[in-house]
């Protein structure tokens, strides 16, 4: 499966009239290149993850956020993400998790096309921008300890 994805190694480019997305390359089940070239800020990333109207992450995931009440249970805990996955694998899952699992419930955080009936306010916009994605990745990579559920 990964090999096939690697072979296909899609270079994604989007319609310039919409929000201009940074092109990225999927190789061996990962996007190894940073979307921005600017190192993500883990503290900002954490803030996005816990912000319910922004990252939306805790609607489905739980994680090592003792101050946050009401974390969802539809998806795996984010604790230990950095031990389970490489940075590039996390980036692919953030950008468009359907590339990993077509049936996933996880929203594509960096995709604005191929979506149906998107509300006018959100049309042609991605859930997060490229730097926000990098911030979240920097934070998730830092979650090393798999025991703190």
């Amino acid at each position: 499966m990964w090999r096939l994805l690697g072979l296909l190694a899609v270079l994604v480019s989007f319609d310039a009239s919409a929000q201009t997305l940074v092109p990225y390359r999927i190789e061996n089940g990962a996007i190894t290149q940073s979307l921005t070239g600017v190192k993500g800020d883990a503290a900002k990333g954490r803030a996005i993850v816990v912000e319910r109207q922004k990252g939306l992450c805790l609607l489905c995931h739980s994680g090592p956020f003792p101050e946050e009440r009401f974390q969802g249970d539809l998806a795996p805990s984010l604790a230990g993400t950095g031990s389970r996955m490489s940075e590039g694998e996390i980036r692919l899952r953030m950008v468009d998790s359907t590339k990993v699992n077509e049936k996933t419930i996880m929203p594509p955080y960096y995709r604005s096309e191929g979506l149906e009936r998107v509300a006018a306010n959100y049309k042609a916009k991605t859930l997060l921008n490229a730097q926000e994605i990098e911030d979240v990745i920097a934070f998730l990579v830092s979650l090393k300890d798999d025991t703190q559920k």
């Binding site: 009401f70 929203p107 979506l115 998107v118």
Partner: peptide, 27 residues
């Protein structure tokens, strides 16, 4: 059918994940 920026379908929550919790809310 998947819809919206979040790309969910009704079935993904109400069939596949019924009984689970979206934040605090039981589905």
């Amino acid at each position: 059918a998947r819809m919206g920026q979040l790309n969910f379908s009704c079935a993904q929550c109400h069939d596949d994940n019924a009984g689970g919790h979206l934040g605090a809310a039981p589905i």
